[in-house]
Amino acid sequence: MKRSLVFALLLSFVLADTSFALSEGKLSSLYGSYLKGFAYFNNGEYEKSLKEFGQASSIDPVSTHIRIKLAFVLMRLGKFGEAEKEFEHVKSMDPDNLEASLGLIFIYSYLGKEDKLESEYGYFLQRAHKLRPEDTRISEYLAQFYFYRKRLDDAIRIYKTIVKDHPDYIEAKYLLGYFYEEKGMRREAIRIWKEVLDKNPSHVEALNALGYLYAEEGINLGEAESMVKKALKQDPGNGAYLDSLGWVYFKKNDYKNAERYLKKAIEGAEDPVIYEHLGDVCVKLNNVKEAVKYYNEGLKLDPKNEALKEKVDKYGRQDKASEEESKPDKKVNN
């Protein structure tokens, strides 16, 4: 009696979505097929498992649990197209079924279906966030996905909630500042990063980010230099930090030091922004030929960069004109 009770409880749990309108005979067949399918799957006998789960699904086609088991067996057999259809069917019956969404993510990743993978990943994160809004990790994944999709308002909205609920979560606050800066909301970014540094004066990313932003704005340049140098003490070879310091010196009209640090930066991190900064310094040092070289190097890394294209065109023509002017006059001998 005790054994049969445990058996009944187990089946009622794993087949919780099974229709109770089934007759006793069909219910018995359903349980039998499910357990056989499960046993065959664990033994690696996937064809037999497929047959049993298929039989169980035909008895009760509304069971999402059985359809998911069936889909995973199909994946084991390399029948990804059929597995995809099963997972999609489950989603149509139960949009919040994260197991079905994960199955589709695996299939699209395995088959290299990048567009579908990206779409399903977003769907999964949105549903997971809806079901578990208190789970900070899921919230962050979703916000970063929105950032990747250039949905900055959504990313900011989620991180504002995280920071509100977890005011001591410094990394979340730093990233909120980063998203503000990407959005062009520099005053908000400055405010947030100052709060980060108030909590943790040695936060290396915030030191660099705020120092660089001050340089971009042409404000607080002494403080900016101090901040970036503090970041470099923690990570002396970091190309991004060296670039920041070089750019601070550029804004202070100290072009020799700017060139010195930007050349160090390019050794540690090939980046179109650093090449553009180097080109700008060379222009100030009246070395237009070298500037064009650096702008072209930046374009190789970012061929669609319009600012670099304009600078290559402008200073390339200027360089050619200088070369023409420097050529000796040709004298005609009679």
Rank of each mutant, 00 (worst) to 15 (best):
L278K: 00
Y315Q: 07
Y148I: 12
D235M: 10
W247Q: 01
L98N: 05
E47P: 03
V281K: 00
S63Y: 06
K300V: 11
E84Y: 05
F20D: 00
A56W: 11
Y294T: 01
V163L: 09
E182R: 14
A209N: 13
Y315E: 12
Q144R: 13
E84I: 10
E324K: 09
G298I: 06
L301A: 02
F13A: 12
I107F: 07
I138T: 10
Y275R: 03
Y148S: 12
P133T: 02
E310G: 15
R151M: 13
E82I: 09
L232W: 06
F250L: 12
G37P: 08
L210P: 07
F13N: 08
K51Y: 09
R132G: 02
P61R: 11
G103A: 10
K331E: 15
L22G: 08
R67T: 08
F20C: 01
Y148F: 12
L77D: 12
R127A: 14
E217F: 13
Q55E: 04
G103C: 09
S109N: 12
A206I: 06
S326A: 13
I59D: 01
G218C: 05
Y40V: 07
S23F: 00
N43A: 11
A209C: 04
L22C: 07
E88L: 14
K264R: 04
L299D: 09
D302T: 11
Y46A: 07
K309S: 08
Y255Q: 00
S119Q: 15
Q144N: 14
E225C: 03
K293V: 14
K304A: 10
Y108M: 04
I105N: 08
L125I: 15
I59N: 01
G184H: 04
R187F: 07
S58E: 06
L10M: 02
D243I: 06
E225P: 01
A39H: 14
N334H: 00
F124L: 14
L102F: 10
D313K: 13
A307D: 03
S119C: 03
K164L: 11
D168L: 10
D168T: 15
K314L: 11
K79T: 08
I219E: 14
G246W: 07
F13H: 10
K264P: 01
L175H: 14
Y255H: 00
G81S: 10
L245G: 02
S326E: 02
L22P: 03
E52P: 11
V273W: 08
L131K: 12
F38Y: 14
Y275H: 05
G112I: 06
Y315V: 05
G237M: 13
L70V: 04
L232H: 02
S202N: 15
V283W: 04
Q126H: 07
G44R: 06
I219A: 12
A231D: 09
E217I: 14
E45A: 11
K263S: 09
Y214K: 05
A71Y: 02
N334F: 03
A155L: 10
A155V: 09
L15I: 12
D243N: 08
F145M: 13
P303E: 04
E310W: 01
D235A: 06
A8T: 03
K130C: 06
D153I: 06
K69I: 00
G268A: 04
E223P: 01
E225H: 04
K300N: 05
I68E: 04
Y275G: 01
N208I: 01
L207M: 03
G37C: 11
K331P: 14
K173V: 02
L197N: 07
